[in-house]
């Protein structure tokens, strides 16, 4: 830098310093970079602490008590681990966990299979593929409450389109197709709706994975005489696998705590056949008002999801770094 240049810079700095109001300048000058960073982060941190961390700690505390939210004046007793012991021995809880596992497994299996297939087809870039992508994405953009409500209508045995369509193809009388009130059909009814709604999401992630595979890899494979099947198995699937696994993770976590849609469609019924964990939790907390007990259950669910997700992310990273 020449002398004239540096003197220009000096003068500019001086002018800037003069133009800044003295009190502000003094305050800002007093702050280090680190101090400034804390200044910006603190409000968000406080908000997060208030609405996320505090309730979590409070729930952990409650899980060791016999507190009931509908009897605020009763003396709260510390009951130690007895809430946890009762949950792990509770038959109903295990039935709920089984229902959840059934729901999570089948929704993930179907959504991954259909989602990947759709992504694979869309990725062929046929005429109008942009239009069809948008059409496929519509269910995902709806509110779960809306979806729950209109599927209730679709599932109506007398007037519902679903029952009508099934009877049209199978010849079974539509009044016998009671998707939401039949013990055997109800678990599948919620799986169908969830799949209908969230397959597009899985498709979108898979599509991102497929688009990340460069064309020349396929061209090299074609010159190397790899059939389309072999290209799918030895190029497309392995290279898109991290994305597919990510979609499975998102859907798994989401469906493990699925509440809104199931609550609207079946409310856990008939009986408790579709009573997934979150519905049980709601019943324990806000129908039976066993706040301490349901807090303990919530903590168990949280630890389970958190632990499983962590293991899964480790595996995912290993797959990604191959």
């Amino acid at each position: 830098m020449t002398d004239s240049q540096s003197s220009v810079l000096d003068r500019t700095a001086e002018r800037l310093a003069a133009a800044t109001p003295v009190p502000l300048a003094r305050k800002v000058r007093g702050l280090s970079d680190k101090g400034l960073a804390w200044l910006f982060i603190t409000p968000t941190m406080l908000l997060l602490l208030a609405i996320n961390i505090f309730p979590l700690i409070w729930a952990i505390y409650l899980s060791f008590t016999n507190y009931r939210a509908n009897r605020p004046n009763e003396i709260v007793k510390n009951v130690g681990l007895s809430n946890y012991q009762r949950i792990l021995g509770d038959q109903d809880i295990w039935i709920a966990m089984q229902a959840t596992a059934h729901f999570v497994f089948w929704t993930i299996a179907l959504q991954t299979l259909i989602g990947f297939t759709l992504a694979y087809l869309i990725d062929r870039k046929f005429r109008g593929h942009a239009f069809w992508t948008t059409v496929i994405l519509v269910p995902m953009m709806l509110s779960p409450a809306v979806v729950g409500n209109f599927w209730r209508f679709l599932y109506q045995p007398q007037i519902g389109l679903f029952a009508y369509a099934v009877s049209f193809f199978t010849g079974i009388s539509p009044t016998e197709i009671e998707m939401l009130s039949n013990v055997h059909l109800a678990p599948w009814a919620i799986i169908i709706v969830d799949t209908w709604m969230w397959t597009p999401y899985v498709m979108l992630i898979c599509l991102a994975g497929l688009r990340s595979i460069p064309d020349y890899i396929y061209e090299a494979a074609e010159v190397d005489r790899a059939s389309h099947w072999r290209q799918l198995w030895s190029i497309t699937l392995p290279m898109a696998l991290p994305f597919i696994m990510l979609a499975v993770l998102f859907r798994g976590i989401e469906n493990f705590k699925m509440f809104d849609m199931v609550n609207l469609l079946t409310g856990g019924g008939p009986g408790s056949t579709t009573e997934v964990a979150s519905i049980t939790l709601k019943r324990e907390a806000f129908e039976k008002w066993r706040t301490g007990y349901s807090s303990a259950f919530a903590i168990i669910l949280f630890v389970a999801v958190f632990g499983l997700a962590n293991i899964y992310v480790k595996v995912l990273n290993r797959v990604k770094n191959r």
């Binding site: 020349y216 890899i217 061209e219 090299a220 074609e222 005489r225 290279m239």
Partner: peptide, 29 residues
């Protein structure tokens, strides 16, 4: 089709199969 022509192509980009080892890349064709 390319597969029926018995040609080999080396691309400007390193068009290796990234998830395979060197051995498997060479064995692929």
């Amino acid at each position: 089709s390319p597969a029926e022509r018995d040609v080999a192509f080396v691309f400007q980009q390193y068009s290796l199969y990234p998830h395979l080892s060197v051995y498997d890349n060479l064995a692929f064709p």
